[in-house]
Amino acid sequence: MNRGEGKLSVVVDRVDTITPMIKRFSFRARDGGELPRFSGGAHVIVEMPDGEILRRNPYSLMSDPADPSRYAISVRRDEAGRGGSRFMHEKVREGMELTISMPVNMFPSDRRARKHLLLAGGIGITPFVPHILELAAAGAAFELHYNVRTREQGAYAEDLARRFGDRVHVYETDLGEGFDLDAILSDQPLGTHLYVCGPKGMITDVIGRASEFGWPGQNVHYEEFLAPQPGKPYQVELARSGITVEVASHQSLLEAIEAAGVDAPYLCRGGACGQCETAVVSCDGQILHNDHYLTDEEKASGEKIMVCVSRFEGRRLVIDR
């Protein structure tokens, strides 16, 4: 296993169709050994050799942290996305060899919590599966509220409800159900930590309401991943490498840099960790900052760009890479 490089060679062990939109992929180590341990909320970057393009997408691990024999991820098919999820759905078969990164956790639980309150929407359930298994094994107090459109689409809802009984609450939004946020937020013991993962609107609502109810920011956690958004194609000059790269509309700047054979650091590929921060040498146009790592002042200054998710529109952009 190529651990020194922070990468793992795995074989696709199983592919399960959970719903027409969601597939679950299970991986085992290619050398037959144990996979590295991980903590609930961790993700891996899956490398996808898609013809000429090497795609790298982050996915939350959703297998049991206590089981080092397998990793599992869930992939929701995104027709409008840049193609990673379509590749996973259409091309990845059992027995295929893949390269993934070592697990990285940007969404860990706070072990000081007196209680863990988990709010999930749709595919946002995935990081919570290992969280719940970990919390249950440790005997920690937790409560999950999970909004899905229909029972059938509620990937993993049945299984969680069966295993964890009244600590798991599932709501079908197509039936007009949904968790009662105000009731939940106003009746939690001091020292509760709140975690939310799901559609952007839901995350915004939960964070906003929690703040209005006097929940301190230290107790509110959310999965910060952003998929790089497609946009208009553009050119970027890499000052140190002395080359110009073309960024296609369905490609991120980081992917374009990598495709040109230039090494660039990254960890989350979702605008959260700050590892790919790159200095802007000159900019004649508008940087479309899509990350939530840089502060508003830093974004306004135009001196830095997070190449994993941000884009550019304008005449000329030169970056220090």
């Binding site: 937020l185 106003s186 009746d187 939690q188 013991p189 001091l190 020292g191 509760t192 109810f213 006097g214 929940w215 107790n219």
Partner: peptide, 8 residues
């Protein structure tokens, strides 16, 4: 604080 709720 012994029996306090979040939001205190």
């Amino acid at each position: 604080l012994r029996d306090a709720k979040m939001g205190t």
